[in-house]
Design a protein around this nucleic acid. Structure first.
Lengths: 200, 200
DNA sequence: GTCTATAGGTAGATAGAC
DNA sequence: GTCTATCTACCTATAGAC
């Protein structure tokens, strides 16, 4: 064990907050998971809100930043879609509980929280990709789809199976490992689906 | 006002629970929204958990039941997809906060809660639709897509924009009314998208 | 059925010894 | 930096008057 106490707390907090959400999380439980004393949580992070922000901001960045990178890259459209879906699904497979956590808190914390987040962080920016789609349509190389909805479709198909995972997993009656393998094979399925949908 | 106290409580509980989630909801706030005394909540529903179950079960049914109806209907595949997307989006537009509430609690309450729900309620059953897709593929009338992923794609594109609504709405910088109108026009967009994706 | 008052328990946060 | 003990506030739930 060479991890600092601060790291132990952050790891434990990430685990408990992502599973239970802000309101249902108990500082005592974070301390238990971290294997340290409850008082130390306040020594390092002052209060529950600040500890939460530390966990949430990191989780949110992990999504927003990667999105912008790929969206703004200099690549042909089909390659870009393929690269995005592949990379984004990899992030989700590695962190299957994160999307529901982030979406969750955004829903519950209210508009002020979301606005504050948008000002503070560089927000996800789909405009480069949307512009590229428009150009391809004008050039007649893809079908005339609404670019906004196309991006929304792509994001939906990637993220939703993770957010609604308990439901789908219960319906399909498969264990965790099998479900994640399904998500692995889903990458190519989404890419093909989008490709077929927008080809002329 | 001819609504019974019990109904007033249920309406208020639905509003507060869906907005804040189980853990962050205060019985006092439900009483305030309902305009009644806090003690009455316990008189009618005994405790917070039972009141929650009353709200949750109704919300969950609203989704699961309608899904099964359309999935099992005797219709050609394309018509069925069109009918499903149209009807499902209508439910979502009328209850934009419900999907995130349901998904949310399913994520946080743990496996026991989900299992209990699956035994108690007739769970969503995609098999009729999946079987129909397989037949169309064998008949060569649509492209050979994985039926499971096709259903998942359809559900994702419908539901995700509502679950991730605060995020998308903040990015698109539109007000509530505009966003819901976007969802209205999205119905046809999804139908066309799926149609193009699976046509031979 | 509806209200007030309060019991009983728990959670976040602080004080202070080591 | 880390621990124990405790304060204060709040929340669910109940008891009991009306």
């Amino acid at each position: 064990m060479e991890v600092s106490t601060e790291e132990k707390i952050l790891n434990a907090a990430k685990e408990v907050f992502t599973q239970k959400g802000f309101a249902a999380t108990r500082m005592q439980e974070i301390a238990d998971v971290a294997g340290i004393n409850k008082g130390l949580l306040h020594y390092y992070f002052r209060n529950k809100n600040k500890l939460f922000r530390a966990v949430f901001d990191e989780a949110f960045s992990q999504f927003a930043l990667r999105v912008n990178e790929v969206f703004a890259a200099d690549m042909p459209l089909f390659e870009k879609i393929e690269a995005f879906v592949s990379q984004y699904m990899d992030i989700l497979i590695a962190n299957p509980a994160l999307p529901s956590f982030v979406i969750n808190e955004l829903n519950q914390k209210g508009d002020a929280f979301v606005q504050d987040l948008m000002n503070r962080k560089n927000k996800p920016n789909p405009l480069p990709l949307i512009g590229q789609v428009q150009m391809e349509i004008q050039a007649g190389r893809i079908r005339a789809v609404n670019p906004f909805h196309l991006v929304l479709n792509m994001l939906s198909m990637c993220a939703f199976p993770f957010i609604a995972r308990p439901l789908f997993q219960a319906i399909a009656q498969v264990d965790d490992e099998t479900y994640l393998k399904l998500m692995e094979s889903r990458k190519q399925e989404i890419i093909d689906f989008i490709h077929s949908a927008i080809r002329v």
